[in-house]
């Protein structure tokens, strides 16, 4: 059965051979994003026994005209993580390294997220099945990317892209040696991703649910990250998402991260 599936992929790969991989990536990475948004989110962390913990998050995001994106997540509940704030600055320019910072109220300090230390990029994001690295993007400069075929999901054709880490440093930075993504061939949104560790073992699978176009911008209802090693999963859902024409720059500063205002 597995071989049959592979054969199918090979066949479809040849069918889409004319498709320019670069064009797919361009469409995928340059989705029409709102200039700004404000959202209420819930992060449900469910272990393999079905026990659940929930975190409430207020999020603000911004897309600049040069393609840079910024996001701040503010944990509002439960009380033991309240006022933890997390800032991501994603630069379109490959020459600039993306930045992530976290404010931990118990320490009263801002810490930069690195590849090691107490909060490493490959470590769990506040106890969830997402890592800090998962909250960023897969940078083209870090991976050899291949179109390995197409596959129908929910009756819609999807391109299957394989990202292979270029070197051990990239594996250290992302925590994965290989990532396979299913990209909707109609709207170029990512639907599913599978994450393989450095040894090539499939360790996590994410699913994006409820993708729709609202006011010309792609939005989804939830993203589910299944941890195949622990049997647990985390569901990150939008309870409310408001597109804004603009947003105060203050949200994306270390000043706001530390003060919360």
């Amino acid at each position: 059965m597995r071989n049959f599936w592979k054969m199918g992929l090979l066949l479809t790969a040849s069918l889409v051979g004319a498709q320019d991989l670069e064009a797919i990536l361009d469409r995928l990475e340059n989705q029409n994003r709102p200039p700004a948004s404000e959202a209420d989110m819930t992060l449900r962390i469910i272990n393999r026994n079905g026990q659940e913990r929930a975190r409430q998050i207020k999020a603000y995001s911004q897309t600049l005209s040069n393609g840079d994106t910024r996001q701040i997540l503010i944990f509002t509940a439960p009380a033991d993580v309240r006022d933890t704030r997390f800032l991501t600055l994603d630069y379109k320019d490959d020459a600039k390294t993306d930045e992530q910072y976290i404010f931990i109220p118990a320490l009263r300090r801002v810490r930069q997220i690195g590849t090691s230390g107490g909060e490493s990029r490959t470590g769990s994001f506040l106890g969830s099945d997402f890592t800090f690295a998962d909250l960023g993007t897969l940078e083209r400069k870090d991976f050899n990317i291949r179109l390995v075929g197409t596959e129908a999901l929910d009756g819609v054709n999807h391109f299957v892209l394989e990202y292979t880490a270029k070197n051990p440093t990239v594996i250290n930075n992302y925590g994965y040696g290989r990532v396979v993504r299913w990209v909707n061939s109609q709207n170029y949104s990512s639907r599913k991703s599978e994450y393989y560790n450095a040894q090539g073992r499939l360790v996590k699978r994410s699913l994006i649910n409820g993708y729709k176009i609202v006011n010309g911008y792609g939005q989804f209802e939830s993203i589910e990250m299944n941890n195949l090693e622990t049997g647990g999963k985390t569901v990150w859902s939008f309870d409310k998402n408001t597109i804004l024409p603009s947003i105060d720059e203050k949200f994306f500063t270390l000043r706001f991260l530390e003060r919360g205002r």
Partner: peptide, 11 residues
Amino acid sequence: VSRSYFDGILN
């Protein structure tokens, strides 16, 4: 000097 191992499980 610190370093994380096993995807952040051990620091």
